[in-house]
Write a protein that binds this DNA or RNA. Structure first.
Lengths: 213, 213
DNA sequence: ACTTGTCCTGTCATGCCGTCAGCTTACCGT
DNA sequence: ACGGTAAGCTGACGGCATGACAGGACAAGT
C-alpha cells in the first residue's frame, strides 16, 4: 500500500537501513516517555541508538517528523479498539459488562501509548492538522461505533439527544481520565473506583438508564 | 504575600524593571498562542519585546520558568470560577440555567487562556508537579463546589454514586471539550449544539435526572 | 558632581541544528 | 573473484540558541 520506505534524499531503504531507522524510532519512543517533549533532542536520540545525528536526518526531516511516524503507527494499532464496541450488546447485565470492557480496553490502550498520545494531543490542540487527524482516527475507532450504539439503544426513547454528542463526550471523558488519572486520585477517587465509575457513565450514556443490579 | 519581585541574581526589581519583565511575559503569552510550544525560543520573545536575550535571563531561569509565572497568574484568576457553582440552586428550571451558565463560564475561561492551559495540561500529563498543582488549582475551583452540589442534590437518592468522581468527570469533560472543540465539530456536533449538550450532561450529573421542559 | 543601586546589553564559550562531501559496506551481474 | 553501483554512515562545518558575565547607561538621592 504505502510504497517503499525512502530516505529524505530519495534513496530506497534496504534491510540494514530499515533496522537503524526502526532503532531510532524505538529510542525516540523511549525518550518521549522519560523526558519532556520540549527537551527531546536529535542528538540524544542518536546517541541512545548508537549512531550519529546525521544518520537521524537521513530518515526524518526533524524530531516532529519522526514523532508523526510513531503516531501513525499507533493510529493503525488503534483500529483494534473498534472490537470493544462493534457487535456488542448493551442490554441489561451484558450491557454493563460491555461497558466495563470498553473502559478497560480504552484505558489500557492509552496507558500503553501514553507518551506518544500526549504529544499527539498537544499537537492537535495547537491546531496542527496532521496531529489532529491522527487523534481523530484513534478516537473515531471508538466514537463511530459508539455513536451507532447510542442511536439504536437510547435514541428511540429520547429524540432530543444527539448520539454523536453523547458518544463524543464519553470518549473525550475516557481520554481525559486516561491522560490525567492522577487528578482523580487527588480528588479522592481511588484508582480501583475510577474504572467502575467511568463504566457506569458509559452505560448510562448509551442505555439512557441505570444498570440493573 | 509574595515578597517583592526579584531578578535571578537577587536584585529587587524597580519600576522600570517590572515593566520590562511584564512586557516579556506578555510577549511570551503571545508567542505561545501563535507558535508550537516546542518552537518558542528565548531569542524570539526577547526580540518581540524589543530587548535582548540576556535581559530575559535576568528575570527568568528559562522559558519554562516564565511559563510557570504566567500559569500561576492564570490560576489566581481561576478563583472566579467558583462563583459559577457556589450558592447556586440546582432545582428544576433554575438548575438548568445554573448548568448552562457554568458551561458558558468555564468554556469562556478556557478559551481566554487556551494557550497557557495547553502547556499546563502537557506539563501535568508529563508528570511535572508544578504544572500538575496549577492545573488542579484551576479545576478544583469548579470541582470542589460541584462535588458539594452533587452530594447534596443526588447523593440522597443514590448512595452508590461517588460525588467526587461525578464532579471530576464532568469537569474533565468540560476541559476536554474546551481544548478540543474541533473534534466535536468533526463528529457532526455543531458549535451551537455543543454547549446545550454539555449543559445537559452537567445537569443530569448533578441532579440525577433529566431537566424539566 | 558624586555615589549608589537598578537596568540593560555586548560578548563569549558552549552545545545543538541541519547539511554535505566522502568514506565504507553490501549486493549484484559477469 | 572482481568490479560496479547504490545503500549506509559519519566527520566536519556554518549557523543559531543558550546562558553567564562584566561593564556601561541611567535615574535618584546627597
Amino acid at each position: 500500500m504505502t510504497g517503499q520506505v525512502r530516505t529524505v534524499d530519495g534513496r530506497v531503504a534496504g534491510r540494514r537501513g530499515q533496522e537503524t531507522r526502526q532503532k531510532l524510532l524505538d529510542c525516540l519512543r523511549e525518550m518521549l516517555s522519560t523526558s519532556p517533549y520540549r527537551d527531546v533532542k536529535v542528538i540524544d536520540v542518536a546517541r541512545m541508538a548508537g549512531t550519529s545525528p546525521a544518520t537521524f536526518y537521513q530518515y526524518f526531516p526533524d524530531v516532529e517528523g519522526a514523532v508523526l511516524e510513531i503516531a501513525e503507527e499507533m493510529a493503525e494499532d488503534s483500529g483494534g479498539l473498534k472490537e470493544l464496541v462493534e457487535g456488542k450488546s448493551w442490554a441489561g447485565k451484558t450491557g454493563a459488562a460491555t461497558s466495563e470492557e470498553l473502559v478497560d480496553g480504552f484505558l489500557a490502550f492509552w496507558r500503553k501509548n501514553d507518551a506518544i498520545l500526549r504529544v499527539v494531543t498537544l499537537g492537535a490542540a495547537e491546531g496542527d492538522k496532521r496531529f489532529f487527524k491522527i487523534r481523530m482516527k484513534v478516537l473515531n475507532s471508538v466514537v463511530a461505533p459508539l455513536t451507532e450504539a447510542v442511536r439504536t439503544n437510547q435514541g428511540k426513547t429520547d429524540k432530543t439527544i444527539d448520539p454523536a454528542a453523547v458518544a463524543g463526550s464519553l470518549v473525550s471523558l475516557l481520554a481525559s481520565a486516561a491522560e490525567h488519572q492522577k487528578a482523580f486520585t487527588s480528588w479522592g477517587v481511588k484508582v480501583k473506583d475510577l474504572k467502575p465509575n467511568l463504566a457506569l457513565q458509559v452505560y448510562m450514556g448509551v442505555a439512557g438508564k441505570k444498570p440493573p443490579k
